[in-house]
Design a protein around this nucleic acid. Sequence first.
DNA 1: AATAATTCCAAAAACGTTTTTGGAACTTAC
DNA 2: GTAAGTTCCAAAAACGTTTTTGGAATTATT
Lengths: 334, 334
Amino acid sequence: MAVTILDIAKHLDLSVSTVSRALNGYGDVAKETRKRVEEAAKEFDYHPSDAARSLRQKRTNRVGLLIPSTIHYMGEFFSELIRGVTLALAESGSNLMLYTTTTDEVAQLTRICRAREVDGIILFSADKLDEAISFLKTESLPFVVLGHSINDPAVSFVASDNRGGMMAAMQHLLSSGHSRIAYLARYDQPRLHSQRLLSYQQALTEAGLEIDGDLVTSASIGTRTGYRAMNSLLDLPVLPTAVIAFNDQIAINALQAASERHVSVPDDLSIVGYNDIRSSLSTVPQLTTVRQPLSEMGKKAAEVLLSRVHDNDIPPIRTNLPAELIIRGSTSHV
Amino acid sequence: MAVTILDIAKHLDLSVSTVSRALNGYGDVAKETRKRVEEAAKEFDYHPSDAARSLRQKRTNRVGLLIPSTIHYMGEFFSELIRGVTLALAESGSNLMLYTTTTDEVAQLTRICRAREVDGIILFSADKLDEAISFLKTESLPFVVLGHSINDPAVSFVASDNRGGMMAAMQHLLSSGHSRIAYLARYDQPRLHSQRLLSYQQALTEAGLEIDGDLVTSASIGTRTGYRAMNSLLDLPVLPTAVIAFNDQIAINALQAASERHVSVPDDLSIVGYNDIRSSLSTVPQLTTVRQPLSEMGKKAAEVLLSRVHDNDIPPIRTNLPAELIIRGSTSHV
DNA sequence: AATAATTCCAAAAACGTTTTTGGAACTTAC
DNA sequence: GTAAGTTCCAAAAACGTTTTTGGAATTATT
């Protein structure tokens, strides 16, 4: 059996309560006694039972991160986020539980809340975000949404400035003389898509350009996402001179499609990605992209959550981190 | 406050023990009573407290996955593994705790074990694997190593056939007429590296070729890993005609370096990757690579661990899943 | 020198389950 | 018609902590 606090107490001829207070830094214990306890704890490699402590304290020192089950389609994106999350958690001594969404997201959240498996939840999953949010609002479990800016002023979120990011990309292309700019979207991400689309349309309108429905199309999720969609753009009677992709993966596959059809990037076609994942440095040419500070977003989300775990009555924290255009080789003057 | 088993018991005028037995499927409860209990539990959305249950049952229904803190450098690789892990865990009703390694791995493992935070651990971290293993062997916590084949016959692992995979790549190149074959390694992964190096050398020797030390070099971890190393290979007085990279990321960056120096792949240079991550389909040309069944490995590792959680006295399960050469456009006849 | 305050610690309660033990009520067996 | 099973359930113990309460011993205050 594992060593318990009782073993320590017996060994030192103290009561368990004193040992507990000594280890948790309470004041009601003599200096000398505390030292003895700490030494014994070290000697026996004593660590308090996680379950027992959680039960008594009503705190688990765990936070949950809910991610989509299609996580393997967004490996780089995700791992940057998670890095930030783990960084922030490590500082506070909390641990991370990873939940992948199931078919019934709300049932899953119900269990997590009612069984008190975690102290709080970072909602990254996007499947049925609205339902998930409205459920969590009825529970007392702190939560924060990661990656989406939420309209409801009562919910905390950490996202990046989508409108601004997309606008920066558009302005870069427009000022480079492009007028036929395609948007290679992801319709299955309606929340992000609609924001980006708005900026796309606004930029065109402000530039006095027509909005051509043919130039907005969607990549489908899967391996080589965006490959087929890019090809269909290249089948248009009048080709676009620039493409903004929903993310870097799509941009990379668009690059591949263009290359296969001997459309030269950036000479014949400019391509802009989104997110600035590491791979965007590895293409030929390197991707111009809108950088989202993914790691920082993860870190910030964890911090926001932890502050709510500490006190859930503080007003909601709603953060849009700035997006930044990174100009590399995949775009040029028309 | 959350609803407890006592609330259900009071509401139904039963004892807590009966409610517990009813919900957990024990025999000692009348059909009618069980039905009433189940209905009440559903009505109140009752879920037993995770902490209380863990404490009493000495089982947490959680397993840990230990990953390196440099996880963001291996996003795709990692997310495929994790997908398999979560798939297997979901089937068994277990949850996943994600631990990133800290400076003192053993101290971290000590805490995890002694605090009984999880039922078992999947060791994916490679930093000080030997120390970690020898520590875990002294504890009673079940564990399995993921991604490395371990010599010690007492430890369970799930890996893929490194020797075979590397050998397949070499044979492919040799039979295509290549004789100057470089190996773009990762010295900081000594375990995997040494196995691959052995196969590399063996294949050359069997083909009656000299082993040229200049042709074995190492990529360093970081963004664009392998870019600089590839460039130094291209600076050699006599160029290699083929390169086997330690992983696909390195291969992709090697591809980029070659392209920038107008070395045509595969005409002037063949490049082989390793792992078959999704991105290996997105390059121009697409990567020839050695496929490791990453998702299956993760799944298998979780299954092996769970079987040990169920009964830790079963003999070690040691699995090398087959690696498979996938021939695509980045390699050709010399 | 008596009282008040302080320091240190032990005892006990509490957290919410599961599991063990035991016993009442009802059936079956002879 | 008693003995022996069965069926169902309640009571209590146990899991390993933290926190509250209270009290003895020591020190400070008047």
